[in-house]
């Protein structure tokens, strides 16, 4: 009887622990394990400062994916960002990707304007050609504050 109770307790503990660990990896760690339901797109920016892996991608203010990888193209002096976009979201080849800031000092995110003046959809692995790099707040502030001095 006593032995049974102990094994039950151990069983409950392991199940609870595994559930927690599973929740953390799947939900918080954003690891999809039931098949991949997204496709990837690339975009090149002159600067991606403040953006990091996992940053959200929004379209019309709705989250449609996340930044998967940040690499560098040294030949062209560009930062290459790989997006994972949820399947079913259509993005045309004249789409514009811009890096924006939530609030004044909030996190960076990528906003995509889907485009649509042409009929050509971007295929998985395709590249968004039109990009807007983030506005540098420091630069902005210094322009505003010391603008007159520089002139």
């Amino acid at each position: 009887m006593k032995k049974y109770a102990m094994e039950t307790a151990v069983g409950i503990f392991v199940v609870i622990g595994l559930l927690c660990a599973g929740y953390m990896t799947v939900k918080l760690g954003n690891v999809g394990f039931l098949g991949d339901d997204s496709y990837s797109l690339l975009a090149r920016f002159t600067s991606v400062s403040g953006l990091r892996t996992g940053s959200p991608i929004q379209m019309l203010g709705i989250k449609i994916g996340r930044v998967n990888r940040l690499t560098m193209d040294q030949e062209n002096q560009m930062a290459v960002v790989e997006f994972r976009i949820n399947k079913g979201i259509m993005i045309y080849d004249d789409a514009i990707a811009s890096i924006k800031t939530e609030g004044l000092i909030g996190d960076r995110y990528v906003s995509i304007d889907p485009g649509g003046s042409t009929d050509e959809l971007l295929q998985p692995g395709g590249t968004i050609t039109e990009t807007e790099s983030p506005t540098d707040i420091q630069e902005l502030i210094s322009k505003y504050a010391f603008g007159d001095v520089e002139k």
Binding site: M24, T25, K27, L28, G29, N30, V31, T53, G54, S55, P56, R66, D107
Partner: peptide, 11 residues
Amino acid sequence: VQSSVEMKDVT
């Protein structure tokens, strides 16, 4: 919470 925690943090 969800968007900030990365797999790397968990591992």
